[in-house]
């Protein structure tokens, strides 16, 4: 769960920078699933970056999984990041590391035993249908395959908060449906999920409460 109060964000500093978010306030409870909608440039990715602690809000209050972000120390933020999964719009895979190693990365950072890591990686990669591409490098995969690797890495450690930026844009309809069913199951298990998308068809097919942005302003918070 997370809370934003009067949050603004500007790329390149609040004085001179490009305003991406203005005075956004939100309150999303544990285990909720939310669509994040808005036209291109509305600030969806910026909002998700704040939620995944990739950037700090320029002003306002951000509280994630009960931790007030501005007051937290660096080590505390690192701990918090280990409870957040993020699927980036550009996938964020390391090009010189195998698919296996990319997906195993969060578990390795938690110093899990290698045998356990191998077991979990195989299970999740089987689920996304890529268990035969474990030794490939990300640039050798198609866009949809890379997207599935990014999704696998974001959910492998069962995060308490999952933010996904256009996670279905490179997937076919069948895969997108599988993904939506997994998201709903994760939400049932208590993961708070925010999914940004342009895909009106999928939103219509899987109705859920919606957050809508326009020019960095919150225009709909239907919770």
């Amino acid at each position: 769960m997370f809370r934003l109060h009067d949050v603004s964000y500007a790329y390149g500093g609040s004085q001179t920078g490009v305003a991406a978010l203005s005075h956004v306030s939100l309150d999303v409870a544990q285990g909720e699933f939310r669509w994040l909608l808005g036209p291109s440039g509305a600030g969806k990715s910026s909002l998700l970056s704040i939620l995944s602690l990739e950037v700090q809000a320029s002003s306002g209050m951000v509280e994630i999984l009960g931790v007030p972000v501005r007051q937290a120390r660096r080590a505390g933020l690192a701990r918090l990041r280990r409870r957040i999964g993020a699927v980036k719009q550009d996938f964020g895979l390391l090009p010189d590391m195998s698919v296996f190693d990319n997906v195993a990365l969060p578990l390795r950072l938690q110093h899990r035993v290698e045998a356990e890591i191998a077991h979990e990686v195989h299970a999740i990669m089987k689920w996304v249908g890529l268990e035969h591409r474990l030794e490939a490098l990300p640039p050798q995969l198609s866009g949809g395959e890379q997207q599935r690797v990014a999704i696998a890495r974001a959910v492998i450690y069962r995060p308490a908060l999952l933010v996904a930026d256009e996670p279905t844009n490179a997937l076919d309809e069948r895969q997108a449906g599988r993904l939506m069913r997994m998201f709903h199951r994760l939400a049932e298990l208590g993961t708070t999920i925010v999914v940004a998308t342009h895909n009106d068809a999928i939103v219509a097919k899987y109705p859920a409460p919606t957050i809508e942005l326009l020019h960095g302003h919150l225009v709909r918070d239907h919770g």
Binding site: R81, G92, L94
Partner: peptide, 16 residues
């Protein structure tokens, strides 16, 4: 740089 940014985002501490 890219790898450090990534593992930082995945929760690696500064001391690690």
């Amino acid at each position: 740089r890219q790898a450090i940014g990534l593992i930082h985002a995945l929760g690696a501490t500064d001391s690690y």
